[in-house]
Write a protein that binds this DNA or RNA. Structure first.
Length: 833
RNA sequence: GGGCGGGUGGCGGAACUGGCAGACGCGCCGGACUUAGGAUCCGGUGCCGCAAGGCAUGAGGGUUCGAGUCCCUCCCCGCCCACCA
């Protein structure tokens, strides 16, 4: 007989099993070389301070999956590391002067300690931090490889400059109202040289790859599609009479070009000063000046008023030779397209409003296909922007829009006045950062040879320990002469190092591959391991990374594919984006609201298993949840209830399985319930992750157990079977408790085993299939009773039974049955009139 | 303006290919045990109604024997993108 205690004491159970798992090394990847692999990955944390509930949730979701897959017999890789370079550590250093390295190391320690307390099944032997030179040296190595292949280049142009972080940002890091994704400060344009990845060269590839990502949430692939923003159109040249220059415009609606009644340039367009008529000059210059001083967000943001001025110049529509006025206006952006648009007020709402305001003619050239004809331009109350059939469009009249677009672009190419053109919203990824706590860019500037790459053999270029963190916007590394002054690898002459560092999104772009050989000093990761483990099977993380990390990481994987390092184009098959854990008040957890709950105290009070159960039971993984103390207590209550039923039925532990065959009546029903539960939980772990309903099924099984008092050995065997299934099915969700109870049931015989790597239970199909069912009886679609029949019952049998039901009889009385609908195993419906 | 999600009891959420709406949990109500219970166990709990019954899945229409689920019109909420030419 078991010597188990009456009370559930998470605190005494959890550390014990954590130690056992650790000693036995059950979470090491590669323990089952003959088995199929599964790579389960959660986005690694940036270790700022301690772990919060958001982390607890992602890792709990991933861990439940990893534990399940391990029990299914897969060789599971489930690693963890730290995204340790980046601005917060440096910004904090500005305040208290502590070295980012020191602070980061401490935070990592704290983080790791907390994660270990939750008992996540990570293969800790593979842990690394991106601030280790052993990691970032490979960032530098990739940089060199990409430089050789022209995927990295140096450019000078308008870069996004964060006025808070005092560094350049990538386009993706600029969020609404042109603010910094990280600190929220305004982002301004600054002309500055920077290093960039030619991600735009991969735009079509990245776009096409999205179609294959069927196990990614659609909203993420849609966001990427929109971000890449491929638009097919044409570029067309409008000649300027009396000038050798031409205005090149980009349009997606070349089919409307015969309706073009004016041309608009961005105020910054280089032709503006050249073409402006002398009598318009003052007004135009004043407008341009004013636009310069207006913030970009204000100029193009929501509710901005369309305004512009006429330059006095004219341009010729190459399709019909028409002479059109050239305007400049605030809504045309120099950085999009060619910085010039052809305006077709009848078929573009923005052009329509502008034309109305400045009394420019409106000419209809597209008619709707099916609806009634549009009135002449002056009679329109808004632009007709859909496709239709062309009219008043020379030789193209009568064509459908889509067809016309192709022919007109081809026509333009033949005449040398334009060509079909594909444009993307995606910009190249500028990754230089004027900060200290990042990967040094391995470049040396020499008077004689310019920018010279640091030879591979000299990597890593180490971050100097004596960081001077100034917060001035000058690269801090520039202030460390020992770092800056070096010799040219080509000529040996005096040279200066690049003092900018890499965007930390570089670190997270390939870390998943580094887990394959985290300590390898010869290569970023070994090829044979890439064959074994990649791609990632399931990746769990927040949807906020939909465009940024998840785009960069797909880009990087393609580059690695080109380098022959990986053997598929996509880094990860399936993506799970988990929702936010809000405060109990439904608001985002924040010090400001005083609604922050952290894992530590919750684990102290209830144990890690209770916290995990809450994370999984509260809702499906994708949805946001509100922290709820009551709900958490409810889960603690459930685990205690599980514990107590094991304790109360400890006399069943020693009953032999052979007695199972004798189970009858309520205990046969229990066996059915047990096997149905196995089926339900197993299904919940596959496909859509339904942890919440899986746990609900376990609760039902427990509720059933409480209703039964076993009297015979057959009864006890059925109870024991249920308890064993319960412990096993609980293992992915509440692993410590599951392990403890499982060993209690099995006794000394199980001493050498760990539930964490035992096989997942199978259900007996014969027990899952019910032999009798409840059939709903409806009269005219309304429920009037129910009957118990065998699953095989035929319609006439069910009908006869149903007609005997009193309430059914009452509703059938005096009516004619016109029709009977019978759905086997579900319902019978009498249609009467 | 565009795209993608959502809208079901007091709350979190269930509901397979159209087939008994509300599983499971929280909360609440009642009972048992108890010196006591905020522990535990048992029972109840969508709304109206004494009941029979009626009404209920954002609103309104439709298809169907039957609609949370399918179709149409509309409203609201969340997220992402956005004067993108």
């Amino acid at each position: 007989m078991s010597s188990m205690n009456e009370r559930y004491e998470a605190k005494s159970i959890e550390p014990r099993w954590q130690a056992r798992w650790d000693e036995a090394g059950v979470f090491r990847a590669g323990r089952r070389p003959g088995a199929e692999k599964r790579y389960v990955l959660e986005m690694f944390p940036y270790p700022s301070g301690a772990m919060h509930m958001g982390h607890a949730r992602v890792y709990t979701i991933g861990d439940a999956l990893a534990r399940y897959l391990r029990m299914q017999g897969y060789d599971v890789l489930h690693p963890m590391g730290f995204d340790a370079l980046g601005l917060p550590a440096e910004n904090a250093a500005l305040k208290d002067g502590r070295h980012p390295a020191e602070r980061t190391r401490e935070n990592i320690e704290a983080f790791r300690r907390e994660m270990k307390r939750v008992g996540f099944s990570f293969d800790w032997s593979r842990e690394f931090a991106t601030c280790d030179p052993g990691y970032y040296r490979w960032n530098q190595w990739f940089f060199l490889k990409m430089l050789e292949r022209d995927i990295v280049y140096r450019r000078t142009g308008k870069a996004n400059w964060c006025t808070g972080c005092l560094t350049v940002l990538a386009n993706e890091q600029v969020v609404e109202d042109r603010r910094c994704e990280r600190c929220g400060s305004p982002v301004v344009e600054k002309v500055i040289p920077e290093w960039a990845f030619r991600i735009t060269a991969y735009a079509d590839d990245l776009l096409a790859g999205l179609d294959g990502l069927v196990d990614w949430p659609e909203r993420v692939t849609t966001m990427q599609r929109n971000w890449i923003g491929r638009s097919e159109g044409a570029e067309v040249d409008f000649a300027l009479p009396g000038s050798p220059d031409k205005v090149r415009i980009f349009t997606t609606r070349v089919d409307t070009i015969f309706g073009c009644t004016y041309v608009v340039l961005a105020p910054e367009h280089p032709l503006v000063p050249k073409i402006t008529a002398p009598e318009r000059r003052r007004e135009v210059e004043a407008f341009v000046e004013r636009m310069k001083s207006v913030d970009a967000a204000e100029r193009t943001g929501e509710g901005a008023v369309k305004e512009g001025v006429f330059t006095g110049a004219h341009a010729l529509n190459p399709f019909n030779g028409e002479k059109l006025p050239v305007w400049i206006a605030n809504f045309v952006l120099a950085e999009y397209g060619t910085g010039a648009v052809m305006s077709v007020p009848a078929h573009d709402q923005r052009d329509f409003e502008f034309a109305r305001k400045y009394a420019i003619p409106i000419r209809v050239v597209i008619q709707p296909k099916e609806r009634s004809r549009l009135p002449a331009g002056d009679g329109l109350d808004k632009a007709f922007t859909e496709d239709g059939v062309l009219e008043d469009s020379g030789g193209f009249s009568g064509l459908a829009s889509a067809d016309a677009r192709l022919r007109m672009a081809a026509w333009a190419r033949e005449r040398g006045v334009g060509e079909p053109f594909v444009r993307y919203h995606l910009r190249d990824w500028g990754f230089s950062r004027q900060r200290y706590w990042g990967t040094p860019i391995p470049i040396v500037y020499c008077e004689a040879h310019g920018a010279v790459p640091v030879p591979e053999a000299e990597l890593p270029v180490l971050l100097p320990p004596q960081a001077i963190i100034t917060g001035t916007g000058e690269p801090p590394l520039a202030k460390v002469p020992e770092f800056v002054n070096t010799t040219c690898p080509k000529c040996g002459g005096p040279a200066k190092r690049e003092t900018e560092t890499m965007d930390t999104f570089v670190d997270s772009s390939w870390y998943y591959a580094r887990y394959l050989s985290p300590h390898d000093e010869r290569v970023p990761f070994a090829q044979d391991l890439a064959r074994r483990w990649l791609p990632v099977d399931v990746y769990v993380g927040g949807p906020e990374h939909a465009v940024m990390h998840l785009l960069y990481f797909r880009f990087w994987h393609r580059v690695m594919e080109q380098l022959g390092m990986v053997f598929e184009s996509e880094p990860c098959k399936r993506l799970v984006t988990q929702g936010i854990v809000n405060g109990p008040d439904g608001r985002k957890m924040s010090k400001r609201w005083g609604n922050v709950v952290t894992p530590g105290p919750i684990i102290d009070q209830f144990g890690a298993d209770t916290m995990r159960m809450f994370m999984l039971f509260a809702s499906p993984p994708e949805k946001d949840i509100d922290w709820s103390d009551e709900q958490v207590e409810g889960l603690f209550r459930f685990l205690s209830r599980v514990w107590r039923i094991f304790y109360a039925r400890r006399d069943t532990f020693a009953v032999p399985d052979s007695a199972l065959a004798g189970a009858a009546g309520a205990f046969l029903e229990l066996r059915r319930r047990t096997h149905r539960t196995i089926k339900k939980v197993t299904e919940g772990m596959q496909g859509e992750l339904k942890f919440n309903t899986s746990i609900a099924a376990l609760m039902e099984l427990v509720n059933d157990l409480y209703q039964l008092e076993p009297a015979s050995d057959a009864d006890r065997a059925a109870v024991r079977e249920a308890l064993l299934a319960l412990a096993t099915l609980l293992a992915p969700f509440a692993p410590h408790l599951a392990e403890e109870l499982w060993h209690e049931v099995l006794g000394p015989a199980s001493r050498e085993l760990l539930l964490a790597e035992c096989p997942w239970p199978a259900f007996d199909p014969a027990l899952v299939a019910a032999d009798s069912v409840t059939i709903a009886v409806q009269v005219n679609g309304k429920l009037r009773g129910e009957v118990q029949v065998s699953v095989a019952a035929a319609e006439n049998e069910v009908r006869a039974l149903a007609e005997r039901e009193e309430r059914v009889r009452a509703h059938l009385a005096g009516k004619t049955v016109r029709k009977v609908i019978f759905v086997p195993k579900r319902l019978i419906n009498f249609v009467v009139g």
